[in-house]
Design a binder for these strands. Sequence first.
DNA 1: TAGTGGTCTAGACCACCAG
DNA 2: TGGTGGTCTAGACCACTAT
Lengths: 234, 234
Amino acid sequence: MTQAATRVGYRDVKRALLDGIRDGEWPPGAPLPGEVALAARFGCARATVNRAMRELSEEGIIDRRRKAGSRVKLSPTRQARFEIPLVRIEIEATGAAYRYALIRREIGPAPDWLRGRVGLPDDAATLRLQCMHYAGTAPFQFEDRWISLDRVPQAADADFSALGPNEWLVREMPFTTAQVTFSAIEADEAVAGHLGLPHGGAVFLAERTTWLDEAPVTHARLHFARGYRMTAVY
Amino acid sequence: MTQAATRVGYRDVKRALLDGIRDGEWPPGAPLPGEVALAARFGCARATVNRAMRELSEEGIIDRRRKAGSRVKLSPTRQARFEIPLVRIEIEATGAAYRYALIRREIGPAPDWLRGRVGLPDDAATLRLQCMHYAGTAPFQFEDRWISLDRVPQAADADFSALGPNEWLVREMPFTTAQVTFSAIEADEAVAGHLGLPHGGAVFLAERTTWLDEAPVTHARLHFARGYRMTAVY
DNA sequence: TAGTGGTCTAGACCACCAG
DNA sequence: TGGTGGTCTAGACCACTAT
């Protein structure tokens, strides 16, 4: 005779549900039993089923709506999670020595495209910084950044010759929202020079903007050296 | 006199903790109070505090370890979540008409680089498919895919002339693990031709592999047309 | 070994929304 | 308007690990 060897945890429930979905018990679009029914079926509390189903929903496997119940998603919109570490950490993780160099520092009005993109007032003053991050002696990333002096006035007096703006901002300036965009562009003269690429070579570009309660803090264009790959498992 | 207007929820706790971190009550590296203490402070159950802190931990804001307690991360490793929809959905979401075309279909042994990359046996047979996805009349994505016939034998008999392999696989074949890698490459002759780019033009490449319980199911190289951007807010 | 987080339970109330 | 998910509680036991 079988006996409940151990207590049923939310992981067990999750696995059982995934198995059922995979094995066709609940094909795409099909409604799943309610939480109470599943709790009875699995012999656990409703809260346990709830956590399992909440996670499945967060992972994009099922849809949940009050009253309507839960359904297996027709096209599972699975999502990948990318970690966005500091460049220094990323480089040091490869075993290489991290080196940083400030290339240019300049205070001036925000360019039009940037104002439109992040929502800055017309007369907004920004600090523009260009710098390089090296892995050993090899160029790793060319950073082109604008910092809103309205939001971060103290940046005007900060010394960025030894500490990168990103690390400085992490310590100095919290943010509530961030946006990242990845794309591929062709290196212009300047970028190619900094990264040691041929002019027109393919560059992996990450653009990152952060806001503190609606007010833009900073916008960075991070150009990665040849061969850079960004990976996620999900 | 103030009065607890409503019940304290995990969102309130989370916000309060984030505020405290932002305002310097708990600077980076500092230990946070234990769950019991916080529950008392906020006037709620420990489970509520637990959920708030668990989410902060999942979001990369704090570190949690038994016995050691919770600490604010030194360098907050925030993570971005990207939705990976079906190409068709992605195109239709822009309002454009989706069109699909199969370019090439071929059965043969897996190339060496692929075997090493995904872990296929030496004699593994694969179905290779090349196809195009258009947004209206404009090329949107060139897909170059291998499907393991060991794992998905029925793919050999499937008709991919009207339905794209990705949509077919989603319906036909579940997977347990997936990996995505983004990079920028220069278009070779073939890719340039398919996407209407100059030879050597920058291409945003997403490589996607899926496994079902350790066994590789499929590997796809998705080449996006000029100007493609992949965005996440976090 | 003791303290902290991890999880489960049984019960409860509430918000939402499809019928 | 009733059923479903969303959340909270109070209490409990357990697993891990720093000391």
